[in-house]
């Protein structure tokens, strides 16, 4: 936790620096009133102060407990996160429906054992259900891929 808090505090300091730099380019005061940069500047300063307090708290603390899940758990978390990121990444090429189907297929094959029928059924039914509810009923134009769906 100690290291994590220190990293996060550093990250927040960076964010506050970026916002402060950005807000200095905007007007601080307008005619009668705070300008475009007034609010963000003070927010950034407050964030910087809070981050420094957090940093001090973290440095003064001794414990540095483990936070990583077990091996199996970590594998599951990574495959879930990875699969999600990849499936969003491929949406412009495959369309959202195929991407969702592949996502379900991959995770059902990796996380836990399921019956054949279950795997095929869920991977097929999910995009079909999404198509029927969102595209057909609610007329959401779901993103299509290069295959024309």
């Amino acid at each position: 936790m100690k290291t994590a808090d220190m990293i996060i505090a550093a990250l927040c300091l960076f964010i506050s620096g970026a916002f402060a730099a950005g807000s200095l380019k905007l007007g601080y005061m307008a005619e009668f009133t705070p300008g475009s940069g007034f609010f963000p500047l003070w927010l950034a300063i407050a964030l910087a102060i809070a981050s420094l307090i957090l940093l001090a708290q973290a440095i003064l603390r001794q414990e540095n407990g483990a936070w990583l899940p077990g091996r199996e758990g970590l594998k599951r978390v990574l495959s879930m996160a990875g699969a999600t990121v990849i499936s969003v990444f491929i949406i412009p090429y495959t369309g959202i429906l195929l991407s969702i189907g592949l996502f379900m297929l991959f995770l059902m094959l990796t996380i836990e054992k399921h019956s054949w029928l279950g795997v095929i059924g869920v991977s097929l039914l999910t995009p079909v259900a999404v198509y029927l509810i969102f595209q057909r009923w609610l007329l959401v134009p779901l993103p299509m891929g290069v295959f024309g769906f």
Binding site: I120, L124, F147, G148
Partner: peptide
Amino acid sequence: KSRFLVAGLTLVALFIGMFAGGV
């Protein structure tokens, strides 16, 4: 082997189904 088979079958079905709907 059977897992790959499942994956393959599903993929084929996905494609066929969507082409039928999409084209």
